[in-house]
Simulated assay, not measured.
Amino acid sequence: MRVPSRSSGRQSGPGVVPAAPVRRLPGPSPVRPSPTRPSPTEPDLAAYRAAVAELLVEVGALADAPSTAARQLLLDQRLREPAITAVLDATPQGFLGARETLLLEMARYQPNARSSAGDLTALVRIYLLSRIDVMWWRDTPIFSTDAQVNSSIDLVDLEWLRRRDLLQFRYQEQPANVLGRGLRAVRRRLFPAATPHTAGLMFRRARREVVALLNDIGREFASATPPGTPPLWVTSLVRSAEHQYRLRSLGYAAMVPSGHCLGYAADVEMTWFQRFGVRDVLADLLLARQAAGEINVVDEGQAWHLCLAPAARLRLRRSYEAEMGV
């Protein structure tokens, strides 16, 4: 099957607000640009993904340690291809900043069991494809601190929605203390395949548009899979930049800047669904939405990273309001 790289609070805190939105987004629904005919003011993302896929083949051939100089020369040449330069230049860092960040990420790379980047090729894939997220939302302020995530009126409490049966996906929170982590470990030993092997959400909060997107995907996934298949499982949502740096210090491939810190990204479990024979079904659903211009998809191994496209934001905000009856 195709993969994206080749085709293209834990507590809600005192600031938690109920699910009803603070304000509606006015105006008519925008016309979506054709995925095969990009807007003249936006880079051609199909060409960008194709160029990245070609670059990854060459990086894979130079993955050994003695090839450091050859890899840097390769990147210097290939990143200057118009399709790649157009995207990198449209990110907040600009072309030079994005290039230097990628080279630093590669120089510092150390494989470990926690990182979604199993090798240098995966690191380059994750970094370059995730630049689409930050290009899309380049004018959106990030959530810098945990406190900002917990108090933002632009985010809703997932637990409030879950208790009212308004979510079409599942998640679990990170344990809050040593006792919670111990109980989680015991459950995993007793029932190792009952849930995905993931740390869970640090913040159980999300933008309304992202909730609507995940509910849409969850319904579509449930309709396309046999009875008894578990619902869509979300492993990560909004993160603060503060938490992103904590993850980096632990060895995770947490890119900076990131769509998670903007609140428009989510990670969904993939590997666990292999035991139910439906991983490819979910992958095809996600790639179809990418082809329609609704999301960006990055294969990160066990989970796939999704980021909402700005063109789909208003439709999904209205979908959320209609679904929640507000």
Rank of each mutant, 00 (worst) to 15 (best):
R78A: 03
A51V: 04
Y48P: 06
D64T: 04
G97A: 01
L96H: 06
N112P: 02
A69Y: 10
L45K: 02
L104Q: 12
R71Y: 14
A90H: 01
Q110E: 14
L74N: 01
G97V: 06
S67Y: 01
T68G: 10
L73D: 06
A107W: 08
L88Q: 01
P111N: 09
L79P: 07
L56E: 04
D44P: 07
P43H: 02
L102G: 09
T68P: 04
L102W: 08
R71E: 15
E54Q: 10
L96T: 09
I84A: 14
N112I: 05
T101N: 08
E100S: 14
L74M: 03
A50P: 15
L104D: 00
G94Q: 03
A86M: 08
A53E: 09
V57T: 11
A51Y: 08
E81Q: 15
R71A: 12
P111L: 04
A86L: 11
T101G: 04
R114M: 12
Q77W: 06
D64V: 07
Q77V: 09
A65G: 02
A83D: 07
S67E: 03
D89E: 12
R114Q: 06
L79F: 06
G60C: 02
Y48I: 11
A98R: 02
I84P: 01
G94C: 00
G94Y: 06
L88H: 00
L104Y: 10
I84S: 06
E54H: 06
L62Y: 00
R49S: 09
E105N: 05
G60I: 08
D89P: 11
T68L: 11
L55V: 03
V59M: 13
T85Y: 04
P43Y: 04
Q110K: 14
L103R: 03
A47K: 11
A65T: 07
T68E: 13
E81F: 09
E81D: 11
Q77R: 12
Y48N: 05
Y48C: 01
L104P: 01
R99T: 07
G94H: 02
T68N: 08
A50G: 14
R80N: 09
M106S: 13
T91H: 03
A50L: 12
E42I: 11
T91L: 08
A65Y: 05
L55Q: 01
A46E: 15
S67R: 05
R49P: 01
P92N: 05
E81C: 05
N112Q: 05
E58P: 12
A65C: 08
